[in-house]
């Protein structure tokens, strides 16, 4: 990727970074295949430029943003924990800007309650979207409540490790919501729509008993097929290092975000 200019941010966890090699080679991005190495291996034909993101729905000023415009937003370095729903985790230095900064530009209307996101569909560039076997319905879609989307921790990332995003990490622009499981971080976004109804999300459609709309990291609520009480830190210790560690409520961001869910039953709204 190309180098990006960014400024320091107070939103930085003081933990050892996952090596760049692991961040860019151990990925879930089913548009490029089911294996962890598939996104890096099968994404060389993907063209992240030129690119536009259409923002529409319940907004005062719908707009199509060109990538140059998005890269010109004040970019910040954000070192976040990333907890995959599969019980592994990383610490990743993202480069991006708050999602709220983009929302402000389109002026959401009063009845907007949710934000829906959509990934690009390009079967000719994304081998997982073509062929006899289709793992998920495309486009990949995700959603947030508007107050979640406006939270300062929620960012649109355009880079990682100081450079523009590699294709396998969701180039050219992706969502990062560090207190939620990684699958909420929708990649290669082409469309953002403000709505008054809870939008569908791909994994929730695929297996509603396993993946909820909220998908907040919660060590107390197991995935039906595995425990979420602990996680495997990728890129630490190999076979024998102590790399299994306890999972924290809201992935360690409870102080910042728990209030968004006060009064909610987090077992029912998993």
């Amino acid at each position: 990727g190309e180098a990006l200019k960014s400024s320091k941010s107070p939103y930085t966890v003081n933990e050892k970074l996952t090596p760049e090699k692991d961040v860019t080679s151990y990925n879930n991005f089913y548009e490029f295949g089911l294996g962890k190495g598939d996104p890096a291996a099968n994404s060389e034909n993907f063209k992240p430029t030129p690119w536009t993101v259409k923002v529409d729905g319940l907004v005062g000023k719908p707009k199509e943003f060109g990538l140059e415009e998005l890269l010109a937003m004040p970019l910040e370095d954000r070192v976040y924990r990333m907890r995959c729903v599969e019980a592994w985790s990383m610490v990743i230095p993202w480069v991006g800007f708050p999602l709220s900064a983009l929302l402000d530009k389109v002026e959401p209307l009063g009845d907007a309650k949710y934000v829906a996101f959509e990934t690009v569909v390009r079967p000719e560039e994304m081998p997982g979207q073509s062929g006899y076997f289709q793992s998920l319905p495309w486009p990949y879609v995700e959603g947030l409540r508007l107050d979640e989307a406006r939270h300062p921790l929620a960012i649109l990332a355009v880079g990682v490790y100081g450079k523009t995003l590699p294709n396998q990490n969701g180039a050219p622009i992706r969502l990062v919501v560090p207190w939620k499981y990684g699958f909420k971080g929708i990649k290669s976004i082409v469309k953002i729509t403000l709505t008054d109804k809870q939008p569908p999300s791909t994994w929730n459609i695929s297996a509603p008993n396993e993946y909820g709309f909220y998908a907040n990291v919660n060590p107390e609520v197991d995935h039906p097929r595995w425990s979420q009480a602990s996680e495997n830190r990728i890129g630490e210790g190999g076979f024998f290092g102590a790399n299994r560690q306890p999972t924290l409520p809201f992935n360690g961001y409870a102080d910042e975000v728990a209030s968004l869910y006060s009064g909610m039953d987090l077992r029912a709204n998993y």
């Binding site: 090699k21 692991d22 080679s25 151990y26 962890k36 190495g37 592994w88 495997n232 990728i234 890129g235 190999g238 076979f239």
Partner: peptide, 8 residues
């Protein structure tokens, strides 16, 4: 020498 999540 195993990438990513060697135990898995």
């Amino acid at each position: 020498r195993l990438p990513g999540n060697p135990v898995k």
